[in-house]
Amino acid sequence: MEIKLTLNGRPVTGSVPPGLPLLDFLREKGCLSVKQGCETSNCGLCTVLLDGVPVLSCSLLAARADGHSVTTLEGLREEARQFVSFLADQGADQCGFCNPGMVMNTIALLRENPDPSDDDIRAWLAGNLCRCSGYESQLRGIRAYLDSRKR
C-alpha cells in the first residue's frame, strides 16, 4: 500500500507491505539511528516520535504512520546535542546501541517536563533498557545537564 508521511520535516512516500513495522520502513529510508533490540516492545531502542509523542517503532505498522509526522534522532540532532555531551562526560554512552532510543525519549521527557526530578527521570525512561551502564551514569548526565541550565 502507498503511504505518505512527514519524516524529519520532509514529505516522504512509500509503497509498503501492510505488515511492515515502522522501524523497518525508517531504516530503509536511511534513518539508521533507529535500532531493534527485541521483537516484543520491551527494550525501547526503536523509540521515535509520532506527532511529537514517543512510540515504539517496532510495534507500530508503517501504514499507521500514514498522514502523520515521524521524527527520528536524525531530525533532532541539534536538540539532542544540548544534553548528550553531559552523558558523554559520565561515560554513559557505553556500547551506544540503546543510546538513540534513550535520547529520543529524553527529548520527549524534557519537552513535557523541563525540570524533572530524579524519580521523574527514572519513571519516564523505565522502558529504555540498557545492558551496559547500570543506568546511574545516565541519570547523573541528565541531572548535570539540568543543573547546568539553572546556573
Binding site: E74, G91, D93, G96
Partner: peptide, 10 residues
C-alpha cells in the same frame, strides 16, 4: 569516549 558523540547522536 572518543566515539561518544557518534554513539549518542545515533
Amino acid at each position: 569516549k572518543k566515539d561518544s558523540m557518534q554513539l549518542l547522536l545515533g
